[in-house]
């Protein structure tokens, strides 16, 4: 089924939207979540929450690319869950407390932060545009879809070490471009 038809199902409040989303993108979403979380149970919950969030946001949203839309949701949910798990496991609750206390911090710079985030995304988009198609795909397969270096190396017909070197050069190139644009993190 085409993306536009699935989105129409969401707008029509037809639950088949979730079944169709799952059959078309379930594999991709599971892979993204698993690449971040490495845990099947958490991964399943994040994918399930992704459909829930998609259901609650369409309408009013009408994404052009459903893959990108659902992928972003699952990435955000997965990274948040990863932070929660990490905080619980490694910091014995301290990070949870700090995170809760962050609610008390006045959010005067929220707008500024959002603008900075948009600038950063724009700079990354510009950098991606300058790359060769193969490098761009490689970068996003690693850092957007979370595919392993081993898997990507296999696909490129190279060794994981050589591919790691190529990834390092790409990251350095992005760093150089961001600095040139005057973006400091």
């Amino acid at each position: 089924m085409e993306d536009i038809e699935i989105i129409e199902l969401y707008w029509a409040r037809d639950e088949a939207a979730i079944l169709e989303s799952n059959s078309k993108y379930g594999g991709m979403l599971n892979a993204i979540a698993f690449n971040i979380l490495s845990n099947h149970e958490d991964c399943e919950e994040c994918v399930s929450d992704t459909y829930c969030k998609a259901w609650n946001t369409m309408p009013p949203q009408k994404p052009i690319s459903l893959a990108a839309y659902l992928g972003r949701i699952v990435r955000n949910l997965s990274i948040n869950r990863w932070h929660q798990r990490r905080a619980l496991k490694r910091y014995n609750g301290a990070e949870v407390i700090i995170s809760e206390l962050s609610d008390c911090v006045p959010s005067t710079n929220q707008v500024e932060r959002e603008i900075e985030a948009k600038e950063l995304s724009a700079a990354i988009n510009n950098w991606l545009k300058k790359l060769s198609k193969d490098d761009r795909v490689l970068f996003l397969r690693r850092y957007w879809f979370g595919d392993s270096v081993n898997k990507l190396a296999g696909e490129c017909g190279t060794t994981p070490n050589k591919l790691a070197g190529r990834m390092y050069r790409l990251r350095q190139s992005l760093k150089y471009d961001l600095e040139k644009e005057g973006i400091w993190l």
Partner: peptide, 17 residues
């Protein structure tokens, strides 16, 4: 922040990848 910024790259790049 980098992770979030990459999350929001253009749809066309994601489709392409």
């Amino acid at each position: 922040r980098i992770f979030d910024a990459i999350t929001n790259v253009r749809d066309e790049f994601i489709e392409e990848a």
